[in-house]
Structures are given as C-alpha cells and as structure tokens.
Design a protein around this nucleic acid. Structure first.
Length: 677
RNA sequence: GGCGAGGUAGCUCAGCUGGUUAGAGCGCAUGAUUCAUAAUCAUGAGGUCGGCGGUUCAACCCCGCCUCUCGCUACCA
C-alpha cells in the first residue's frame, strides 16, 4: 500500500478554546507534530501544518454563562493565550486559525449542504423540552425535577445524583428549567443524523485491511468500535452557539461541534492558501492527523465517513494518536488544576523551550500512558542536555579555540577509529530518519543523543589534550571530525531542539539545515572560523524543581478549598423531612461485590433488623476496615436491586468536590436504631 | 460484564513476522581521565520478561485461563 506522495498535509488536533494548553496536550499532539513537520521541511518536502482553536460546543456556552460573558468572549481569550503560547514554544503551524471565523462558517455550512443535498443524512423528529421564556431547547442538565425512583426533588435531566439512576428528561416528575425556573414544554424538534452504520463495511476494509500499519493502540481502538457496531449520529443540535444549520426551517439549530471541528482543518487551509484543494483533493497528498487517544473515533471513523460521503476529498493516510501523559503519578486534570500549563512554564523557565520539548518527546506516551515528573525533567536536563550534548559541543569548541584560535583545522590521515566514527554519523542519521518516518519520536530523539554520546567517547578515546604536545597534525584531524559531528548534530537535532540548534549553528557560524547534508564530513571546511562557545543548556537546580512541586501542591489545595459549594436545593417542608427514617447502625459484615469496580455489599445492624445494603464505595474503603463501623442509614428508602442483590436502604456519605466519599459517622454514644432527626 | 491498550532490571522504557548467553538510558558500585557547566569515558552488579497451563525441537514474543493498571462501553453508582 505504499503510495507515492508528493506533498504533506499535517493537522494537529484543534485545542478546545475553554482553557489553556498543558503538557499533556503537548506531549500527545503538538510536540510530535511539530517535530515531524520540521523534519519534513528540512527534507525539502512540500508541507503545511494546520491547527486552530475549536470554539463551539456546550462547555463554552456554560463557561460563558458562569462568568456572565458571551461565548465569543471566552473563545477570544483562550484563542489568544494558546496561539501565543504555541508560537513562543516554537510550534510552527503554518496557520493557527479558529472555528469562529467567517471562512469556517462558510466552509462547514457548505460541507453540510453538500451532504444534505446528496441525501446522506437521516432526518429524525423527536420531542424535547423547550423553555418558552428563554426561547431555547434545554440540554439534559439544564432540567431538574423529581426523580421517579427515589423522590429526590432535585434530580437532573440525565441522572439523579441521590439514587444514581440514569434518567431521560421526560421521566422527571414536575420538570423545571434551570434557566428561567419555568416549567418547560415538550416541543418537536428535527435533527439530522449521519448514518455511520452504512459506512461500516467500507470502514472495515479501509482500516482493518488497508491500514494495518496504524499504531496498535489506534488500530485496536478502531476495531473495537467497528465490532461494537456503529450508530447514526446526530450532526445538529438545538443551541445558539455554533455554525447554523443551512437548511430552511432550521432556525436555532447549529452543527454539532464534532461535525464542525474537523472541518476546521479544511477552512484553516483555505484561509492559508488559495490552492487549498491540492492539499485536500489530490491523491498525491499525504494527510496525517496528530491527535490524542480521546480523539481516535472522530479522526479514524467519523471524519473519514464525512469526507467519504462528500466524495471529493482525500482520506488520512495515518493517524499516529498518542496515549495520555500523567503528572507526578496522577492523571492530569484541568478541573483539579493538576497540570503544568504551557503559558506558566514559559514564564517560569524563560528560554527553556527546548528542555520541555526534549523531555516531553523523550518520554512521550507513544504506546501507553506515561508519567511526567519534575525530577525526571531535572535529570534529563542535567544528565542529558547539559552533560552529554551541551558538554560535547562546549568541549569541541573550546578545544578548537585553545589550539587553533577557532579556525577549523584540516584533516590529514584518517585512522580506523576516525573512519568508524564518520560512518557512525551516517548510520545514526539514517536510523533517526527511519524512526521519524514511522512516528517513533522517542526512539528518534534518543538516537540523536547517541550521536552526542559518540562525540564524547571519541574525544575520550583520542585524548587530543594529551596529543597536542606531541602530534599537532593528529589533533587537527580529531577536532575536525569533532566539529563535523557538531555540525551534523545541529541539523539532526533541529526538529527536536530548534532553539538550541540555532544557537549552536551561531556558535560555529553555520546555517545549513537541509537533511540531505546529514552524514557529510565536510559541513565545516578547513579554515572556516567559528565563534566562541556559550552555554547551550544550563543546569536546573533543586530549588527550581522544589518550587514547581510546591506550586502543584498549593494550587491543588487551594482549588479544593475554592471549589464552589453546590447550591442549596429547593426548600422542603418539615413533613417532607419527617418522611425520611434515618437511623444509626453498625456494619457487621462487608464484602466486595464480585465483578464490579465500586460496589460493596454490607450487612448492617439497624437495631430494628439486620439488613443488606449495597453501596458504591469500594474505591475509597476496604471491606475489612468497615466491619464494626458506625454509620447513618436511610432505612425506609425503597429497596432496589443492584447487580442482582437487593439493597435495603442507603448509607449516608458525604462527597467532596473531587468525588471522594466519606462516611457520615455518628458519635460513639449513639446506639443502633437511634433515630436521626 | 464486554471491548481495546498495557504489565520486561531500583526508576523510565526498547525488544520486527517465535531461534544461540533478554537490551538502552538514568540510578548504584569500581576504575580511568581533566579539554569541558565536578561534566566525560570504561567496567560491573541487578530481571524465574505479571501468574498458571498449553502448542512447539524451541516462546518475552502464539493459544487458553487468572490477576493488576489505563481507556471506551454497559441494565455500573
């Protein structure tokens, strides 16, 4: 299936414009994509790199409402922050566009229209709750009402947080719109669906047979989706923020964000160049999507179906999705502020873009989730960038200045060791090339560092500082070769460490970066004058690392405190309250319910009886530690079957903003069966 | 529960379609060295390749079962 491609279209997942960029995004998507793009440019390939902000969707409207500003306001803010951060970090998109642009509205609209006119979509009319005062259909979580199962008066349209049952809005008794507080009415609404199921056969062949070379995590995920069977998927929804559905009578409807976002790649290309069609519609273009694993289904299944349905577009040739990056052993979480934010890193470590690029690449989550730790960051900087690479370059340049006044000396006779080293430059370069071609970026960056290691070893083996006293000609050869290694490094490492390599090329007054030059033994001609060396990298001290770790812990602690406390529920009468029969009780037996993640089955002594209660606390409590524990129990809650076990009541637990559960514990003096009033 | 991806030296990870003594970097120990940001170079110690069973002349790599982690999903909460 090797095709002859003559140009490249590289896309990087459009960051969602409701927050800043963190190291997880970088390691998963933008660092690999930028390395690849820079590499292609150095090879002289025709390539464009596309990215931009994804600015539609419900979360942005929610955030806007929370802050009392317009959605446009929110996306303007993050678009600027992220665009600037990417640029400063050296991510070289040819364009960083945005989906609130006019050109995107036109492109997305046009795309929809073509599919619409081809009769691709299925049209379905359903009844949804509508708020007449706000004049808007209500998303599930904008509706509250009484839970039909447990009677909780404050259940949401999608689920009841009290009894945990998942609901649909129509099941709620006495639904209320949280926007206006009014009672919503059921109203018919029509939406369009992309019948993914009709493309299943085609997808199976295209992915499972024609693209076996995709990464295992990507291929496996696709297979999983295909085996589960695809469903038609709504491409429109009732919302006032997004690209309007370009069909008569579709007022108040916009394209679903998953539909318009990938089209953003197309509109960004249009914005970049009038010749956009040769990138999107010419079979000799190789399109590659860089994404994180959360985006696999959209880029491997849905977007290709859209392109296929439209008919005139090419399909992606590869989608090297990465897994996730953890931070200090915990999942990165925006809401818990457990992240290293790019814009903050750039402030805290000015001029150290390459250090982060290097660490994130060397430890990228290519085949499985990986961990970023500040200790590792420090170690890699100090032991690899400073000690191996920076040191080798510095030794070479200093020696050249000490012995030959900064003038590149000439080669005389080559010994076997010299030839072997020169051969090894070529060898490493070709292996780096191979790794990059196959999206193995961590392997690639490791190999480039091997070239610097080779340089250090060469110097240690040949010891020019000793020979200078007896054999100057030999020293000339040695330093010439060391300088050739240095010049080769400045090309080979440029995709990974662009800032430092530019600096290095200034040290040696060299400004070629063409990949074709790699392996050459004459990048620096004898007689060429080089500049003095500065430091390529500097050590990072423990103090800085400690500060970063402290910062993480502090922001997290503050975040927990500042997490807004949930609003009080609507008033109830004393009568309502007195309906509830709550007692103190003691757990007398507890065991994990087999084959579940969270469930523990308990026997509790309520004073009145001994009964079974099933509770979802296994993630926070060990069954053995529960026995003998005093708890509060809602005893007259209707029994409910959970995993085939009848749960007779509910144990009261408090839930922290981070989701952890904690028992509400009665004082020691309370006896079993004591009423709680 | 179903599906997917992982579980390889103290740590972070490589190991292509099964084939002789399982690799790298860091860390650790010992030695060499001083041109270099006390950096470098060499040598060494460390693994029953998650567990059990099977296929095979031969398995880290194939098959089955079990177990742990992550993700998606489900009549999970």
């Amino acid at each position: 299936m090797k095709k002859n491609f003559t140009r490249y279209l590289i896309t990087s997942a459009l960051p969602y414009a409701n927050g800043p960029i963190h190291i997880g995004h970088l390691a998963g998507v933008y660092v690999p994509s930028d390395i690849y793009v820079r590499y292609l440019r150095q090879r002289g390939k025709e390539v464009i790199s596309i990215c931009g902000s994804d600015e539609h969707g419900v979360p942005i409207t929610l955030k806007a409402r929370q802050e009392g500003v317009t959605p446009q306001n929110i996306v303007d803010r993050y678009h600027e922050v992220n665009k600037k951060a990417f640029q400063e970090f050296g991510i070289t998109f040819d364009i960083y566009s945005r989906t609130s642009n006019k050109i995107h509205y036109e492109t997305a609209s046009e795309f929809f229209k073509i599919l619409y006119e081809k009769g691709i979509f299925i049209e379905k009319t359903t009844r949804q709750y509508f708020d007449e005062e706000a004049n808007a259909f209500l998303a599930d979580r904008y509706i509250t009402g009484t839970c039909p199962h447990c009677g909780n008066g404050n259940a949401y349209g999608d689920q009841c947080e009290q009894c945990g049952s998942s609901l649909s809005p129509q099941e709620l008794i006495d639904p209320v719109s949280t926007i206006s507080g009014n009672k919503p009415v059921l109203k018919e609404t029509t939406h369009w669906y992309l019948p993914l199921d009709r493309y299943e056969k085609w997808l199976r062949k295209w992915i499972l047979e024609d693209h076996k070379e995709w990464k295992p995590n990507v291929f496996g995920q696709c297979k999983s989706w295909l085996d589960q069977g695809l469903q038609p998927r709504a491409v429109s929804r009732d919302l006032d923020w997004g690209v309007p559905v370009p069909v008569e009578g579709a007022e108040g409807k916009v394209l679903y964000v998953w539909f318009d976002a990938p089209i953003g790649y197309i509109s960004a290309t249009k914005e970049l160049t009038g010749k956009w069609e040769k990138y999107w519609k010419d079979e000799s273009t190789r399109m590659i999507h860089f994404i994180g694993k959360d985006n696999i289904v959209f880029h491997c299944i849905i977007f290709p179906c859209m392109l296929k349905a439209e008919g005139s577009y090419i399909l992606p040739d590869n989608i090297p999705a990465n897994e996730f990056l953890n931070l200090e052993n915990e999942k990165i979480s925006t809401s818990r502020n457990w992240a290293v934010w790019l814009h903050e890193y750039l402030e805290d470590f000015p001029g150290k873009q390459d250090v982060l690029r290097y660490v994130l690449c060397a430890n990228a989550p290519e085949s499985k989730d990986n961990d970023f730790t500040w200790n590792d960051f420090q170690n890699r900087n100090n032991n690899e960038l400073v000690a191996i690479l920076g040191n080798f370059v510095n030794r070479t340049i200093v020696l050249t200045h000490n012995y030959f006044k900064g003038c590149v000396p000439e080669i005389s006779d080559l010994l076997k060791t010299d030839s072997e080293v020169l051969d090894e430059i070529r060898n490493i370069a070709s292996r780096v090339t191979d790794s990059l071609e196959n999206f193995r970026f961590r392997e690639a960056v490791k190999l480039t560092m091997d070239l610097a290691r080779l340089g250090n070893k060469y110097l240690a083996d040949t010891e020019p500082w000793k020979l200078i006293k007896t054999d100057e000609a030999r020293v000339k050869t040695i330093l010439n070769i060391s300088l050739q290694i240095t010049a080769n490094l400045s090309i080979l490492m440029d995709p990974f460490l662009p800032f430092s390599m530019e600096k290095l090329r200034n040290f040696i007054s060299f400004n070629e970066i063409s990949w074709d030059l790699l392996g050459s033994h004459e990048l620096l001609k004898a007689g060429h004058q080089i500049h003095n060396a500065g430091l390529l990298f500097e050590k990072i001290e423990d103090e800085q690392i400690r500060a970063q770790k402290d910062k993480l812990l502090i922001t997290r602690k503050n975040h927990l405190k500042e997490e807004p406390v949930k609003e009080q529920k609507p008033e109830i009468s004393f009568e309502d309250f007195s309906k509830m029969d709550m007692r103190t009780a003691t757990i007398i037996h507890a065991e994990k319910v087999p084959k579940t993640k969270k469930l523990i089955k308990m026997q509790v002594d309520t004073g009145m009886d001994k009964r079974t209660i099933v509770s979802g606390i296994a993630e926070y409590y060990d069954p053995a530690s529960l026995i003998g524990r005093k708890v509060c129990v809602l005893t007259n809650l209707a029994a409910r079957k959970i995993k085939g076990i009848e749960s007779q009541g509910m144990i009261l637990l408090s839930e922290n903003p981070d989701g952890t559960l904690h028992f509400v514990t009665p004082a020691d003096e309370a006896v079993n069966g004591a009423e709680i009033n």
